[in-house]
């Protein structure tokens, strides 16, 4: 790759990222730092969660801000004490389904992003499937970090903010789901990457030559090498004062694999312990993963 080609690759990957992901770090940071006109609705307990379910979901379906805002003013129904525990269990299960819906939406965006990456669609179709199968959760947790701060996580396309304490207060195994992601996000966000860096990092996660079962490893490795070199040069240009950023970022790839392995085990545990279903797309991805 010559310098001109490399710059074209960086631009194409950044464009693909900005076009295909509805939320990005720049947007998320504006919301998280209170620089938008409308602050997100804060979900900090079961009542505010149930209120958000009605208002934010209604907003997404109707696309009518004024109508959903008027619903925010309404009082939540008070559950009878005898039903409270059952209602809480149901709410936790619904929260798990909300997480699944967001994951499925992001997997769809990631697939479109991969397809828009130069040379990806020229790969063997089986290899495209393999690369996405193993990459989507690593990429998902990377993108999730952009929506997190130490206190919580943006949800519903930035219209809601769910607190870390509330997620920790859920019963096991749901309470164990997000805390490791917050811990990862704190370390990851300290590197101060912007969307152009993240676009290349997500591309590097996807184009990985050591995923199990790849048919044509050398072709994937060549693509990986071009993305990794583009990432290295871009980081040096974009963060001239941080010369160790590239090796630190590569280290995060190992951290992400560990995070995904733990997450897959937890999903397995939830499937075993709880009477809950898993979206067919996520079932495909988890099946025979590690």
């Amino acid at each position: 790759y010559m310098e001109g080609d490399r710059k074209t690759l960086v631009r194409q990957i950044h464009d693909a990222y900005m076009k295909n992901f509805t939320m990005n770090k720049a947007k998320a940071r504006l919301i998280l730092t209170g620089k938008t006109s409308e602050p997100p609705f804060i979900i900090h307990d079961m009542d505010t969660f149930q209120l958000a379910e009605r208002t934010l979901a209604a907003h997404m379906v109707k696309g009518d801000r004024s109508e959903s805002e008027s619903e925010v003013q309404s009082e939540p129904e008070t559950p009878a004490p005898v039903c409270q525990e059952l209602q809480q269990r149901e709410a936790e299960a619904r929260l798990f389904h909300c997480c699944q819906s967001t994951s499925v939406e992001t997997v769809t965006e990631l697939t479109e992003f991969a397809k828009a990456m130069p040379h990806f669609q020229m790969l063997d179709l089986n290899d495209q499937v393999t690369l996405l199968k193993y990459a989507v959760h690593e990429a998902l947790f990377t993108l999730l970090a952009s929506c997190m701060n130490k206190d919580g996580l943006l949800v519903a396309r930035g219209r809601g903010f769910i607190t870390r304490e509330f997620l920790k207060s859920l019963r096991r195994p749901f309470s164990d789901m997000m805390e490791p992601k917050f811990q990862f996000a704190t370390r990851f966000n300290s590197m101060d990457l912007d969307d152009s860096d993240l676009a290349l990092f997500v591309a590097a996660i996807i184009c990985c030559g050591d995923r199990p079962g790849l048919v044509d490893v050398p072709v994937v490795e060549r693509l990986q090498e071009s993305v990794i070199q583009a990432l290295r040069h871009h980081l040096l240009a974009n963060h001239p004062d941080d010369t160790f950023l590239f090796p630190r970022l590569l280290q995060k790839l190992a951290d992400l694999r560990e995070l995904v392995t733990e997450h897959a085990q937890l999903i397995q545990e939830i499937k075993t312990l709880e009477d809950t279903s898993l979206h067919p797309l996520l079932q495909e991805i988890y099946k025979d993963m590690y």
């Binding site: 997997v107 769809t108 397809k115 499937v129 996405l132 199968k133 979206h279 067919p280 495909e284 991805i285």
Partner: peptide
């Protein structure tokens, strides 16, 4: 592999949303 990952395969082929598959 494509047989075991029908939805992922379909998303790669034509970009249908998972609910449409």
């Amino acid at each position: 592999l494509q047989e075991k990952h029908k939805i992922l395969h379909k998303l790669l082929q034509n970009g249908n949303t998972p609910d449409e598959v």
